[in-house]
Each structure stands twice: as C-alpha cells, then as structure tokens.
C-alpha cells in the first residue's frame, strides 16, 4: 500500500486511559499512545496480556471514556462528542468483534434477533420482510445458511458463533471494524477459515480493521501495519514486514524471538533474546520517532542515533 498518499481514517493522539484515577491503585492501562490507521488497511496491535491492547480498542470505540487525548474518526473528534446524531453515525461506522464467541452472544436471543439488533436500533429495515432478507443475506455472507436464523447460540460451534458475531458487526454496514482477539478461542483448523473470511470481507466491502491479538504469526499474516504495545506504551510502529524482519526496539526483538515456530530444525537452534524492562522506567521522555520511513520507534532524543545506527546495520535507508 502507498502510505504517503493514503487517507487517514483514524487518528489517535496522546490517548491516555487510566483507571481508578487519584486512588492508590491507579492503573495507567494506556499511557500516551499515538497512531494513525489508513483507509482499507489492517492495523495489528500486538503485546502481552496487560499491555493495553484491549483497552486501546475499547477506548477507541468509546466503551470507555478516555482520560485524555484525541481520537479523530474521519476528521471528526470523538472524545466529548455531544451531537447525538453524529455519535449514532459513529457507532454505526465502527463495530467490534469480540474474543469469546461463547460470552458475546446473548443465549436467550435467536440468531436472527442477535444479527438484526443493530438494524432495529438504526431503523435500517423497511419492514419485517426486509429485515429477514437482510439477516439471510448477512448469514450467507459469513458462510451460514438462512435456516440458522431461528436457532439459538448454543446450537452452534465456536467457529460458527464467531461467524454470527461477524454478521452482527456487518449488519449496520460499518466502515471500520475492531477485532479483539477474534480467533484465539477457536481451533487451529477453524482459525484459518475465520481469518480468510475477514480478509474476503475486507476486500469486498473496503473495510478498515484494527486487529488485536497476541498470536504474532497470525497478526503478521493479516496486518498491513503493526504497532507493538508494552506497559500501555507504543514501542514500535511500522509495516508488518518491516517490524518482523527488521525489528529495531529491544522489546520487539525479544517478543519475536519467543514465538514458537512449527519447524523443529529452527526450534533446536533458536536463541531467545532477553529484554530488560528497566529500560522503560520513565526516567526519560520518550516519543515515537520515525527512524526509517514509516517505521517508528519510541525513543528519547539522545537515543535516535543509536536506532539509526541499528537500522543502517540492517541495510535500511535512514530517514
């Protein structure tokens, strides 16, 4: 993708999401992160549990009210948006697919009502026949059939449930989808099916994805660009090939070296890189700096030459 001319759909600036503010157990779940997402791309967020991936996703879709910062969606500031109509439009344009297909579907609702909930709220169906037709089309889109509409969630397998979750998200014709670990609860053979479905929908409907996951190989496969989160801070951002093939930050290197690879030869010779989190003690002010074009690393002013040197060693052209 041509990044220089691409249109920014989402601009996140200095986003902070703290919990229990002012109390002794204040948690800085997301601490001053900034990134942009371009139209039609998949942006992957990776990090360990507790790094703030899910919180970031939830703050963007406004499930939480962010502590401070700015989130612009199609040039519209979302934080503090009072205009009811604009807010409803935003809620239509941005949808979410959740991690656990067992917990995210109401067990007492039929599939057709689950899928059509967004249609009902937004008055997108002319009459009952139109509603049923829309539901049937959505189910067909995600690879289920229309007979499934009058069943309950417990009658489906994990992969099928996740398809229902995807159909529900698509019902309001969103432009942007946040997928929070959409495949981690599924079996290996089913994961590939769901990933292929997401990619196909992206092509057909020109969707933009924020893909949150801890499975690094899957994130690499599905994403155009990747952001690495650690302790609520964004440490490295770049195209997925760049980040995986030429990681600049020590934490990214350590994380990648820990990924198990289905190749016994490789596993026998693997060396794991240790990472010392003391580095991030907050004693220095660090910001994302563009070291190589479109490849950012969080560093302080005096660390820039060190990263530039690293990039040169790997044969990259330094900005």
């Amino acid at each position: 993708m041509e990044l220089d001319n691409a249109k920014k759909v989402l601009e996140v600036k200095h986003l902070k999401q703290y919990f229990n503010v002012g109390k002794r157990d204040e948690v800085k779940a997301v601490d001053d992160i900034s990134f942009d997402i371009y139209e039609g791309e998949t942006f992957g967020l990776v990090g360990e549990s507790g790094s703030g991936k899910t919180t970031t996703g939830r703050a963007i879709i406004h499930l939480y009210t962010p502590t401070s910062g700015s989130i612009k969606f199609n040039n519209q500031e979302i934080i503090g948006l009072k205009d009811h109509q604009k807010m409803q439009q935003f809620r239509r344009d941005m949808q979410m697919i959740f991690q656990d297909p067992y917990a995210s579907l109401n067990p007492r609702m039929k599939v057709k009502d689950i899928v059509a909930e967004g249609i009902d709220i937004n008055h997108l169906a002319k009459d009952d026949a139109d509603r049923s037709k829309q539901v049937a089309d959505l189910l067909a889109t995600v690879g289920l059939n229309r007979d499934h509409a009058s069943r309950y969630p417990h009658e489906f397998s994990g992969g099928q449930r996740q398809r229902i979750g995807i159909a529900r998200a698509l019902a309001v014709q969103p432009k942007f989808i946040i997928a929070d670990e959409p495949i981690s609860a599924l079996d290996v053979s089913i994961q590939a099916q769901v990933v292929n479905l997401l990619k196909q929908l992206q092509r057909e409907r020109k969707l933009t994805f924020l893909f949150i996951a801890h499975d690094l190989s899957m994130v690499k496969y599905i994403s155009d660009r990747i952001g690495v989160l650690h302790y609520g801070r964004m440490l490295e951002v770049g195209t997925s090939d760049e980040v995986y093939n030429h990681p600049l930050h020590d934490y990214t290197r350590s994380l990648l070296s820990a990924v198990p690879v289905p190749d016994p030869e490789y596993e026998r010779t693997r060396t794991q890189i240790k990472y010392d989190p003391k580095y991030e003690d907050g004693s220095k002010k660090r910001e994302l700096v563009e070291i190589v074009p479109h490849h950012f690393v969080q560093c302080s002013q005096d660390e820039i030459p060190m990263y530039q040197e690293r990039a040169k060693e790997m044969g990259l052209s330094v900005k």
Binding site: N196, K199, M218, Y221, V261
Partner: peptide, 30 residues
C-alpha cells in the same frame, strides 16, 4: 513436520501461518 503423510496433518501444518507466510489466502481445512 518434514515428511507428513496424512492429509489432516497437511491441513494442520498449512493452516498455521508462519512468520514468513505471505500468500493471499490461508490454506484452511473446510
């Protein structure tokens, strides 16, 4: 891992992306 013979093992091994999988579609077991 290097000489699998059963089609199910083939499917399992190819449906997992490795860090250098680049193909447009992930091989999946239907």
């Amino acid at each position: 891992f290097y000489n699998p013979k059963h089609p199910y093992t083939w499917g399992l091994l190819s449906s997992m992306p490795t860090l250098d999988t680049n193909s447009a579609e992930l091989a999946s077991i239907p």
